[in-house]
Each structure stands twice: as structure tokens, then as C-alpha cells.
């Protein structure tokens, strides 16, 4: 349970870090996903590039169109930051479910997105919030929509000489209600299943915007476009059918935590609760 040998570099600027990336190097920041993999020797990089002290990669910046979150911003910062609480309360709530305080103190949003665990909160939130993931490489920076970023379990669209430098969250429309429902065997454990929803209500009581995301129940976190299409223009009476569509959309695995069938059952229950919670907040926002 000790990491294999590697060289270590701690650059102080992004260009310096990018020059070190390649097929045998790994980026480390908080290390909360990478170090367990190194300790288990599932990875044997020849070089670790520690970006944890590059100041420009940390922190939150507001723009007229979006909130930009630096890649090495910790889960704990997102959990407690007043701007996140005010503008993306679903993200603040989700952070409370990321492992335990000691992990949240060190783990980072860029690391979690790059690791792309199908049962981790950040990938699902990135999908739910239509995040643009900013990657930097030798030929410059590019924006990758969250929907194109997650390609499979622990697999992303990042090239081996690229790294995540920031995440952009487009501002939500005023009055957007949210719901976040996670089932885990213990507080802080990986999700057995989780659903998150965003809803907005029109003056006639119809749904004018609907987003639904799931995690822990397929190869990657996912959105459920069939359910979103059904909800748009409908009323809460469609929540049951939306939950059934979500159950049909996933391919949950059986593992030590739960059977595939139990996970599919949870999807139905959690989607229903997340939609109800989101609708309640959307109606409050409207009042």
C-alpha cells in the first residue's frame, strides 16, 4: 500500500506545468483520487506534476455570463462559499455529500472531473449545470461541454498532454428550483444512486425548464433527455412518468453496495423526490 517510485515536480505557473505533461506523467492537486490509485499501484506514472500551488488555478470568478471555478478549488470551498450558496445552491448541497470533511478539505473540482468516477458528485453536477470544462494543452485552451467530457467510467475527453484548468457554470435563470437526492449506505460513502433536478415554473403553473441528472447507476453520470422533454410544458402530474423514463434510461451495475434492480428502484424514488423538491423551490421563487 505504498506508491511506486516516481519523479515529482511542483511548477509555479501553468505554462511550466503544461510543458511537463505527457503519456507517463500525471497531474496531482489534492490527490484524493490519485493517491489511493497510486497506493494500490493501479497507476505507475514516471512523473507527478503538482499543480496545487499554481495560484491562478484556484478560486471563483464572476463574469456576466457564468461563474468560473479554478480547477484546484476544493470541495470544501465550494461547500462554504457564499457565492455558490446564493447562485448554485444545488452545488453547495451536493458538496456536503462528497466523502468526509478531511477529503473535502483537499479534494478539488478539477481532480474529481478528471477522475470521472461514475458515482461522484462533480461529474453529475457538471452535466446538470451545463458546465463548460476548460482544458489546457500544448496548443492552447479549449472548452469541452460536460456532455462530451465524460466518455466512460474513469474516462474523459482529456488528451494525455491536457489538464483541466477551470470549470464554467452558466448562471441559472432566476426562479430556478433545485432538488438533490442521494442514497448512500453511510454518510460520505459513494452514492448507491443519486438524482438531481432543476425546474422552472411559468405563470400558468407549467414547467418552462427541466433538467434531470443521475449518477451511480450507469457507466457515467448522465442527463435524462427523454424525461426532460416530457416535463417541459407539463405539470407535476408528469413526475411519475418522468421517474419511469429515468428508470428505463439507466443500466445500473450490481456490486457489493446494491443490486442492479435495487439501484433502478432507487432511481424511481430519488427522481420523484428531486423533482418534488425542485418544483417546491421553483414555486417559492415565483411567489
Amino acid at each position: 500500500m505504498k506508491p511506486p517510485p516516481f519523479d515529482y515536480s511542483r511548477p509555479t505557473s501553468l505554462p511550466e506545468a503544461l510543458a511537463l505533461l505527457g503519456p507517463d506523467s500525471k497531474v496531482i492537486a489534492g490527490g484524493q483520487s490519485l493517491l489511493p490509485m497510486l497506493n494500490f499501484r493501479l497507476l505507475r506514472p514516471s512523473l507527478l506534476v503538482d499543480i496545487g500551488r499554481i495560484q491562478s488555478l484556484r478560486g471563483l470568478h464572476e463574469t456576466p455570463t457564468h461563474l468560473e471555478i479554478g480547477a484546484t478549488t476544493s470541495h470544501r470551498t465550494l461547500e462554504t462559499h457564499p457565492l455558490v450558496a446564493a447562485r448554485f445552491p444545488v452545488l453547495a448541497e451536493a458538496m456536503r455529500h462528497v466523502a468526509h470533511l478531511a477529503i473535502r478539505n483537499r479534494g478539488t473540482i478539477g481532480g474529481s472531473l478528471s477522475h470521472a468516477d461514475p458515482a461522484a458528485e462533480h461529474p453529475m453536477l457538471a452535466l446538470l449545470l451545463d458546465a463548460q470544462i476548460q482544458a489546457a494543452g500544448p496548443s492552447g485552451k479549449r472548452q469541452i461541454p460536460a456532455r462530451k467530457f465524460f466518455q466512460g467510467s474513469l474516462t474523459t475527453a482529456l488528451l494525455e498532454d491536457e489538464m483541466v484548468v477551470a470549470v464554467r457554470l452558466p448562471w441559472l435563470r432566476p426562479g430556478t428550483g433545485w432538488g438533490f437526492e442521494e442514497f448512500a449506505l453511510r454518510a460520505g460513502d459513494f452514492a448507491t444512486a443519486c438524482a438531481a433536478a432543476l425546474l422552472r415554473a411559468g405563470p400558468d403553473g407549467r414547467i418552462t425548464e427541466a433538467r434531470l441528472a443521475l449518477m451511480g447507476v450507469d457507466e457515467t453520470a448522465l442527463r435524462v433527455p427523454e424525461a426532460e422533454a416530457l416535463l417541459l410544458g407539463s405539470s407535476p402530474s408528469a413526475f411519475g412518468e418522468a421517474a419511469r423514463l429515468a428508470q428505463a434510461a439507466v443500466r445500473p451495475a450490481t456490486d457489493i453496495r446494491a443490486s442492479s434492480g435495487f439501484r433502478r428502484h432507487l432511481v424511481g424514488v430519488l427522481v420523484g423526490r428531486a423533482l418534488e423538491a425542485a418544483w417546491g423551490r421553483a414555486r417559492e421563487g415565483q411567489a
Binding site: I28, N39, F40, A99, A102
Partner: peptide, 26 residues
């Protein structure tokens, strides 16, 4: 030694962390 048990928890710059999930050099 993979961040699950919490026995190695210490405070790093005032915040609790798993010392098995941090390199000494970090």
C-alpha cells in the same frame, strides 16, 4: 492507506486531512 479508515487524520495548515492521501513532499 487509501483514505477510508481515518486513523491517520492530522491537521494540515489547520484543516483535517488524511495523511495517507498526501505526499510528504506536498
Amino acid at each position: 492507506e487509501h483514505g477510508v479508515c481515518g486513523a491517520c487524520t492530522i491537521l494540515l495548515d489547520g484543516a483535517s486531512v488524511r495523511s495517507c492521501l498526501c505526499l510528504a513532499v506536498q
